[in-house]
Design a protein around this nucleic acid. Structure first.
Lengths: 166, 166
DNA sequence: CAGTATCCTCGCAGATACTG
DNA sequence: CAGTATCTGCGAGGATACTG
């Protein structure tokens, strides 16, 4: 990838992956999510090369995921923040973290705990809901035993499948 | 990335990104999610080079995201399916798709619709829930206006922040 | 501090031919 | 069909020096 852009795919996944589907972008977003704001914070936390960091931040700003603000007038001091668009990416980040918590770090591995800032309530679950807002039995998402017969998660869909390869 | 592995990060996001955070893997998973099963289906749908596809499938199988099954005994005919571990990645995929539906393809752009296979109910929302299962007002996730003062999504957290860079 | 500029290297990705 | 093998090259990524 990267060599070829995914823009020609009429697929939200592909387009989204094209924007945030690289590791540094993902890690930068995670870092923003966890409170980092400045170039040097990112650089220090992630250990990424400065030019790469610069490039990624630029891309995220151009794609309106992050917004760059001057912290003090006159001085070269900036901070990065989620835009609306960007903050709605948080569920993606949380979903990834939760998966990792569960499947990479095991039971006793003290996963990252997140609290909602306003209510103080812990955030622990991300769920796929049906249109009416009722939770879809989560079992259905992961019910099929790995070696089961015909694992059928969510296979039916409507939309342009035909143009997948173009 | 890719050059350096993310294994040394004690961070679920980083580790998850290391496994599925590249575009072809993501697209393969999407394709599995939408019903593709075989090497040639992937190859045809995605237009990816065969060696790359082979490599990614291998990696996904090694990481126990996908499982390879022989469809007919004796014949070289295989199919790929989600494992338990893999199927729990579906929320990540859905979260990405939804974000793309909303922010890349606009209102009138007919986003992909997904139906739950068993109930037939449409799946449209993915939500972050608090530990008690109650929905966290979704506004809190995206409330801060892009240019607002101090956009505070979910900033508090507990866990090993210290080891971020090592 | 917050980047840009430069150089160099390695590996991802593409194309194509071949095999069981 | 489902890959493996090989060859090539672009460009992502790293390191470091420099600038406003």
């Amino acid at each position: 990838m990267t060599r070829t852009s995914l823009n020609h795919f009429h697929c939200s996944m592909a387009r989204t992956a094209d924007i945030i589907g690289d590791k540094w972008s993902l890690l930068i977003l995670r870092d923003v999510f966890l409170g980092s704001k400045t170039f040097s914070q990112f650089q220090k936390n992630l250990g990424v090369a400065r030019n790469i960091l610069s490039d990624r931040l630029d891309k995220l700003v151009r794609n309106e995921i992050l917004e760059r603000r001057r912290t003090r007038p006159g001085v070269e001091r900036y901070s990065y923040h989620f835009t609306d668009r960007g903050s709605e990416l948080v569920p993606v980040l949380i979903a990834m973290m939760q998966w990792g918590d569960r499947w990479i770090f095991g039971e006793g591995k003290e996963p990252l705990e997140l609290n909602d800032q306003k209510t103080g309530r812990p955030i622990q679950l991300i769920k796929v809901l049906s249109a009416d807002g009722k939770p879809l039995a989560n079992d259905e998402m992961s019910a099929s035993p790995g070696s089961g017969a015909d694992s059928s998660i969510l296979t039916s869909f409507h939309g342009k499948r035909s143009k997948v390869s173009d």
